[in-house]
Nucleic acid binder design. Structure first.
Lengths: 231, 231
DNA sequence: TTGTCAAGAATGATCGATCATTTCCTAAAA
DNA sequence: TTTTAGGAAATGATCGATCATTCTTGACAA
């Protein structure tokens, strides 16, 4: 079997992994909405594959928290809620504060350069797509995550880095949902630059404060959207 | 299908979940040693079930970090190492410090009572098994985890509570491995009481310090064992 | 109308056969 | 002796049929 391409650009060794990545992306992008049933046979048909790879994918997603599972009742896209968003945001603030403080303490010049470069790339990447379509700009999403991960990358703990990455993805899902619901984004271009400057100045307190505010501001916007949808 | 009992006391609705819990326990107890191959057909035979439930279990374990997976190369019990133990310990210290500080801040009398009761139960549960066999005393393990989870239970963040639980289990695996390798345990009975007292006194700094020392002391013991095994 | 219950349909879970890839073993060549 | 090629064996991955459970539907009774 050659590499699989269930979706353009995705190439993996097994069907299970390919399907996993595709469903994962669909959930994070919001094209699979919270609460949606993840019917194994339907997904098999959609991805032109058997039942086993789909079930394996869903098991992975459930452990990751992106899907929910109950024995004999199948899988569902994990629901979203304001309390869960608040919990998530709190965790992001804690973890990123820890990460950036340690990185400021331990980071060498390579770390500084990574922060500088990823921030620069982020500022050069347009927020909206080049083709004018309304979807997310994958390049920007990637640059944004790269910058936030760079900030904590010198903390010395792989566990913390991985945790920040997972939290980022979960929060990203909320952002996508808010965008789909038509939230206008106050452009946070300068916020990122400010955070970068604080980090390169090795000002731990200011970095932590700016990061926390950055996360909370985003969360508040998303919260508003969820509330208007629920009500 | 009635409840399944693959192992005494385990009862779940699907084979996949039953097998998952059994393999998980085997890994945490150390009867499946780090690096051991998790052969799907062998496990199917051992648990008297088909291939699918086993594969689903292994996918879950891999996402959880207890198993490692590479496409087309199957599953392996996750290896252990001194650096990973250090990372894990660091993370435990951070997370439990956060958890206990917030709990001291937010916890009501129900939290205090939970800490008191779980500590009491722990002190009343013998460390070694009633039947004199050398294995772990499941009651003690359970009481120990209950106490540590009680300490952070009022932190207000489900995410943090769940994270502490996962970290506990991962660290517990290291402890089991050290015990199997014949590590003599300096009995930490009083450590737990001291932590309890500090928490009930609402002394956040002392609680955090004692917890961190508690984790680090255990980790150092385990490290020694791993090093002597490696060397 | 509302509640109950028994088919029947839909869906989830499991099975073992089969296909694909990797690993192992052996023999010939360097 | 070491290296390498090739084929067999082992293992991983996938498939679709089948079994088990849950959900739906509609007739009937209260």
């Amino acid at each position: 079997m050659q590499g699989l391409h269930l979706i353009e650009g995705t190439e993996t060794k097994t069907r299970a992994s390919a399907v996993y990545l595709d469903i994962r992306r669909a959930i994070l992008e919001g094209s699979l909405v919270p609460g949606a049933k993840l019917n194994v046979r339907d997904l098999s048909a959609r991805f032109q594959t058997g039942l086993s790879p789909v079930r394996e994918s869903l098991n992975r997603l459930a452990m990751e928290g992106l899907a929910s599972h109950e024995d004999n009742r199948g899988f569902v896209v994990s629901p979203v809620s304001v309390p869960e968003l608040q919990d998530l945001t709190q965790a992001r603030c804690w973890m990123n504060e820890l990460g950036v403080r340690r990185s400021i303490e331990l980071g060498d010049s390579a770390w500084e350069e990574a922060v500088l470069v990823t921030c620069h790339r982020l500022s050069r990447t347009p927020r909206s797509r080049a083709d004018g379509l309304p979807g997310p700009n994958v390049d920007w999403e990637q640059a944004h995550k790269a910058f936030h991960q760079a900030l904590v990358s010198a903390c010395g703990s792989n566990w913390l880095i991985e945790t920040c990455s997972q939290l980022y993805d979960s929060a990203d899902r909320y952002r996508s949902l808010a965008r789909l619901a038509g939230a206008a984004r106050h452009d946070p271009l300068d916020e990122h630059s400010e955070i970068m400057t604080a980090a390169l100045d090795r000002d731990a307190d200011r970095s932590a404060r700016l990061l926390t505010e950055h996360f909370q501001r985003t969360a508040e916007l998303v919260q508003t959207v969820i509330r208007t949808q629920e009500g």
